[in-house]
Amino acid sequence: MSRRRAWLLGASLADLLFLYAPIVVLIFFSFNASRLSASWRGFTLQWYRLLAEDHALLAAVQNSLLVGLASTFVATLLGVCAAVGLERVPFKGRKLVEGALLLPLVIPEVMMGVSLMLFFALVKVPLSLVTVTIGHAAFNLPIVAVIVRARLRKLDPTLEEAARDLGATAWQAFRRVTLPLLMPAILGSALMAFTISLDDFIVTFFTAGPGATTLPLKVYSMVRSSVTPEINALSAILVLVSMSLIASSLVLQRKSPTQD
């Protein structure tokens, strides 16, 4: 028994090492004074300073934030509507919409990017930050819808009935009872959508026009051309940002009141 446990623990720790070593090494070397070598040449913050002075990079960050906020807003609004519609309003063709809604979650991302690009080409919308935003909203909508719907499904349907029984109109029942109970899931999924939008490369790659460079596009072109300590520094910052975003998303989702 204990030997088996030790073996399991060893294997698990090895997995964690595999998962974390590259990231830790990466961050560690962002403080390395040497530009080229993989050996330690002393501590420096100069790569971070260089990043702060890179105007193209800062513009890309701004673009990413813009796209992230706009697409999250759209995706959250539509996603909540879709979730409520699918869960509470019976209508014909519900199964079909459900399938279509889940599709972006399962098809390869490359395909998602390609099809959106074709679509914009066909309707003659020039590729820009707007098309990127639409693309991001498209793949984030199902994520919001799925999370919110899961929460909605767990809600006791008699709660809305109770509100109605106590004199609330259908809208009041939704507004005063259902929506507050959904709020943690909505905020959590919005935060998740925002994170995904900030990180997305592939769909952006296919739907971004010239000049519409987001942070991941910038990182990609940096990574392709060379290995530099600046990228390490940038990566370190990105790791920190996604970790804090996800942490807050988890906190939000955990805070939701449960009744089961």
Partner: peptide, 20 residues
């Protein structure tokens, strides 16, 4: 008459208290 306009109130089987 819809539920919210009826002069009745219901004590639900599992109470359906608003958890928030």
């Amino acid at each position: 008459v819809p539920p919210n306009h009826r002069p009745v109130n219901l004590v639900f089987q599992h109470y359906a208290l608003f958890p928030h």
